[in-house]
């Protein structure tokens, strides 16, 4: 839903980083997106060309790495994937857990020519 405005923000931040580092051409941007973040990778990919249109990033490729949603069970300390186990701890079946990863939305790195 808000992917376009967010990817425009990403493009602005990358441009600022490029200018700061005297970079004129960026080959690719690597984003890390958490599996249960509010960003849907497919929509990010679809909005990306519009966001970089007529900017220095027009020819820059977008690479998305998905970060798995993992949690730590509050009862038995098991670390598990929340999506795979449908929100339950696979060992003790409770729904009480603390999120470890999966909400990220990070510009991981940029690859420059």
């Amino acid at each position: 839903m808000h992917e376009l405005s967010v990817i425009i923000e990403v493009a602005k931040q990358v441009e600022a980083i490029a200018i700061e580092n005297n970079i004129t051409e960026v080959d690719s941007i690597v984003l890390q997106i958490g599996e249960i973040s509010s960003m849907i990778p497919r929509y990010i990919e679809e909005c990306y060309p519009a966001a970089v249109d007529r900017t220095m990033l027009e020819k820059t490729k977008l690479v998305i790495e998905i970060v798995k949603a993992t949690a730590n069970c509050d009862h038995c300390d098991q670390v598990f994937n929340i999506v795979d186990s449908e929100g339950h701890c696979p060992i003790c079946q409770t729904k009480d857990w603390t999120l470890l990863t999966g909400k990220e939305f990070i510009i991981k790195e940029i690859i420059v020519c």
Partner: peptide, 18 residues
Amino acid sequence: MSEFKILEIKQAVFEKND
């Protein structure tokens, strides 16, 4: 062939808004 260089950013996109 141009050489590629990786610039590590690790910047959370919402940090600026926060």
